[in-house]
């Protein structure tokens, strides 16, 4: 993969989340990939300490199915979200893999409430015959240790 492809991929992934194209978004994930959102600044251990999210394909699929459930009352009415991306910073790039860090502002809204989160998102990407896929994603929220109300969609 090349630099432009990687940068386009990062933007496309955020776009899918904002547009609610969740099933297309799920198809971007490799089977063993994990979405990790640490609870603590510079957290090293995702397993033996609590995280905000540490989810495999099954859990991400559950999350997405739930958003559309007939009795998902916390999504009646639904939330909306919006990502603004800084220029992705390519940390590693080979023919078939990349590691990329991107600063983002994430806005989530429901009813009369709106919240803003500042993110550093680190993607591990792999090239496959079907295109670029996510091998891992880590989302560090600037104030990850603050007390939040609901964060219902995917930063």
């Amino acid at each position: 993969m090349n630099r432009d492809e990687v940068i386009d991929f990062i933007h496309d992934e955020a776009w899918m989340l904002d547009e609610g194209q969740y099933h297309d978004w799920l198809n971007l994930w490799l089977p063993n990939a994990v979405y990790w959102m640490p609870l603590n600044w510079n957290q090293q251990d995702p397993v033996n300490e609590t995280s905000l999210l540490h989810e495999d394909n099954f859990m991400l699929r559950l999350r997405i199915e739930r958003l559309h459930g007939a009795r998902t009352f916390s999504q009646k009415p639904k939330s909306r979200c919006h990502h603004v991306l800084n220029r992705p910073r390519i940390l590693e790039l080979t023919e078939d893999s990349a590691r990329v860090a991107t600063k983002m502002h994430y806005v989530e809204t429901r009813l009369d409430e709106q919240q803003l989160l500042a993110l550093t998102v680190t993607h591990d990407l792999k090239a496959t015959p079907e295109g670029i896929r996510i091998a891992g994603k880590r989302v560090d929220i600037l104030n990850c240790d603050a007390a939040f109300g609901n964060i219902q969609l995917l930063p």
Partner: peptide
């Protein structure tokens, strides 16, 4: 340590601001 790992999983799945079960409860 697998016991701690299971408890950490429980905590983030059920009691986090990002947890689906938590969203169900807080809404109520």
């Amino acid at each position: 340590s697998e016991l701690t790992a299971r408890t950490a999983m429980y905590n983030r799945m059920i009691n986090a601001p990002t947890s689906m079960v938590g969203h169900d409860d807080l809404e109520m």
